[in-house]
Design a protein around this nucleic acid. Structure first.
Length: 99
DNA sequence: TAAGTGACAGGCA
DNA sequence: CTGCCTGCCACTT
């Protein structure tokens, strides 16, 4: 499995109403420490719920209107947003380790 | 081959 | 709480 493919797969596993961080996606997809590569995957990936991926602490790391849209999409899925951040304790998706 | 880039993470003031 | 700095890794030029 290619790195990006694995990452995109993990992103697709995030259920509606939940979110995950770049680091979590990277780790659970088998590439710990490759949070930046998750960005690559998301940019290249199509048909993935990219809006469910946030930065550390549930911070939205998308600048400009894209961030606004992400916030909107998350809200529509039932994710509450406090100011500029999400409560990972409640909406963070617990990834099933896949070895 | 080396240097630069990025929707990052974690530590520290 | 915020903002700055460093480490990280795959990819491009």
């Amino acid at each position: 499995m290619q790195m990006f493919a694995a990452m995109l797969e993990e992103v697709r596993r995030i259920p509606k109403g939940k979110v995950a961080t770049y680091g979590d996606v990277a780790t659970s997809s088998g590439y710990p420490g490759c949070a930046r590569q998750v960005v690559w995957a998301l940019r290249a990936g199509k048909g993935v719920p990219w809006h469910r991926v946030l930065g550390a602490k549930g911070h939205i790391r998308l600048p400009g209107e894209a961030g606004l849209e992400q916030m909107l999409l998350l809200r529509m899925e039932g994710v509450e947003i406090r100011g500029k951040r999400v409560e990972l304790a409640r909406f963070g998706h617990n990834f099933p380790l896949s070895p």
